[in-house]
Design a protein around this nucleic acid. Structure first.
Lengths: 371, 371
DNA sequence: GCACTTCCGGACAGAACCTGTCCGGAAGGG
DNA sequence: CCCTTCCGGACAGGTTCTGTCCGGAAGTGC
């Protein structure tokens, strides 16, 4: 019966959307008897999609990872997110081709109303760019945390503090946030009776999760803002408070909010509180402002700005001496692919792909680069 | 019959993996009669997943977008890419929650061998970061191009050159590449008998696609490298050839290959060919090298380096005059969330989330920021 | 230990569905 | 006109599915 097939997909969708379903609830949602639900669960198992079951109070069924990938049943919003994510993944070394294939699969069946949303979000989004890879995270841990957030289940986990000590925490998770090169969990800490942000790479979850808890009002401004407040100021090795000779609104427009906070001083100048892992990166952020500013500390930054001053001065000192012999070889063009009026690019010199695992893209004159 | 359900999923999977399937081929793959395949196609249609059909030579069945999202059937590599992409999407404003939900759905069923791959790729990947949103692209266009790449179908499209003129091109598509803030199509141009790179936002595909063509050897180094060669040099408004006082290998290690090409000169110095959209960005990127260099052109760059020289000199001039009164307020900490020894962060000052659509994160002293 | 919760699965009658074969029709392209 | 493909009804034969009923098993809390 075709209804059997349809019902199996709906059952799979329910099991993917939430963790635990008592058989009676499933029977009610699917409009069949409980015996049929048990048969359906058996059918999913025969198809290779393992469904675990728990008897007794708070028992029920849950879908777990097996050896085969089951069909993924996404709602509209999730499908849009997946389409955007797969485009992002298309730029990731190691999965370009697979991401492209998956994106093609998804987009060929994406309803047109969702396609328009993908287009709109794609052009107006900018994820926080990581400057280097973060610590390794077990995706199973992320999965447990993500499911607990979604299902409003309490978590217990061992948390390793920055000084190496460890302790057990009991929290009500709210949201996972990818911030820079790390993942964070924003949760209500039951022991401290307040919101806290936890580094996911320091969490070792304990099982089982639960019990359930009623959702509480989220922290002010949402999880990402909450993490931004805590992380941006604390995560950097170097910090600076810089007096910028421009109105705060102008400065705010020129920086990524992930890198700093702007405080108005007198309407014409403001203070930028920012940071970075190295003085060089910090100096780059300041340079990108393209505005006059004053720095009095930290000493490393002051030293580095002085070094840059000398370096830049030297860099252009030889301009009148060397003439234009070097730079006239660079031909400014219009847009990408335009060469001599041609709208696309022909074969160029050999350069390695943008693969961070292999950075050997040095070109010796006259011979191909890399392996 | 449970086999009917299983077969429907396999049929759906086949239809998602490739565009056109003659009925006889499907019958062969599924191990049933052609009549049964026609019944199965009807069943998919009744489930809400539209299957189009074409009669005659080169006819067959293809899955198209309907009003409902069908189950997504991903192979192992595609599932890994989707997991990575969804994590990337979790940082995109507007789809955080949906991406998190979709990620949780996927990761709860991801076989453990794939989870490990996700973890490994996640920590060692760095996509080319876009510095700002690219031109709007109709996702339907991307979908058509992606499918044509996958199915090795020729494309005909109207291509708008940079000067506004337009012409029809017939190509054999090879790969879509996300590069910086734009998408590119790498394809064999049948008219010019050579590889070309096309801006996707300038492509208006003509239908239908086809006929099929045998795959040819890809351009040297792969599609991303190919685009890198053409785009990096041509896409920027400003270019520079810079003499760097360091060995080429050292310089190559310090830059992202997306931003430049390094040519050895004499083993101790080398030339960096790079570019950017503004002289400021170019100048600041040169500063990131943390190496001495010489620049003779273009004049805008030289002027701007002089401007930066003055700005930086002024920025640090007041250090001895102003004392440490400003910067001692910044308390360097250990890792994220550590405040006074606490391993996680309590409620901090109010700052807007990292939402590029709303950049008002200016903080007036004493009052909350933003709306 | 008991009561309540949940899953488990066989047996049965009745109903419904699925498959392969056969065939004539329709549409597209060379 | 011929070849390719999809379309779908008719038929016989066989298989599966469903709801009901029931006894069993396991987990949890009091």
């Amino acid at each position: 019966m075709l209804e059997t097939s349809a019902r199996l997909l709906r059952l799979l969708s329910l099991l993917q959307a939430r963790r635990d379903w008592p058989g009676a609830t499933l029977a009610d949602r699917l409009g069949v008897s409980e015996r049929t639900v048990r048969r359906d669960v058996d059918r999913l198992r025969e198809l290779g999609y393992p469904v675990e079951s728990t008897r007794g109070t708070d028992g029920g069924y849950r879908l777990v990872a097996g050896t085969a990938m089951p069909p993924l049943l996404l709602d509209d919003d999730e499908a849009v997110a997946a389409a955007i994510g797969l485009r992002a993944a298309a730029g990731v070394a190691g999965v370009e081709e697979a991401a492209e294939r998956a994106a093609a699969k998804l987009e060929q069946v994406l309803p047109s109303r969702l396609r328009r949303r993908v287009g709109a979000l794609q052009t107006h989004s900018e994820p926080v760019p990581p400057d280097r890879p973060g610590p390794a995270i077990d995706p199973a841990v992320l999965g447990v945390l993500a499911a607990a957030c979604r299902d409003h289940e309490r978590l217990r986990f061992d948390y390793r503090a920055h000084d190496g000590s460890s302790g057990v925490r009991i929290v009500e998770p709210y949201r996972l946030v990818s911030w820079g090169r790390r993942w964070y969990l924003v949760a209500w800490d039951t022991g401290r009776d307040d919101w806290r942000t936890f580094r996911v790479d320091r969490i070792a979850p304990r099982t089982p999760t639960g019990p359930r808890f009623p959702p509480r009002d989220p922290p002010e401004g949402g999880a990402a803002a909450y993490v931004a407040r805590g992380v941006s100021a604390a995560a950097w090795r170097h910090h600076a408070r810089v007096l910028v000779h421009a109105p705060a609104e102008v400065v705010a427009q020129r920086i990524n909010p992930a890198v700093g906070v702007v405080e108005d001083v007198d309407g014409r100048t403001c203070v930028l509180v920012t940071g970075a892992d190295t003085p060089n990166t910090l100096a780059v952020h300041l340079g990108l402002l393209d505005l006059d500013f004053e720095v009095t500390g930290p000493p490393e930054l002051v030293d580095h700005l002085r070094t840059l001053t000398v370096r830049y001065a030297r860099a252009v000192a030889g301009r009148s001496r060397r003439g234009a012999a070097v730079d006239h070889q660079v031909e400014p063009h219009g847009e990408a692919g335009v060469v001599g009026g041609e709208p696309e690019h022909g074969p160029g010199e050999l350069v390695e792909a943008a693969d961070p695992a292999d950075r050997q893209h040095v070109r010796q004159p006259g011979r191909p680069v890399g392996r």
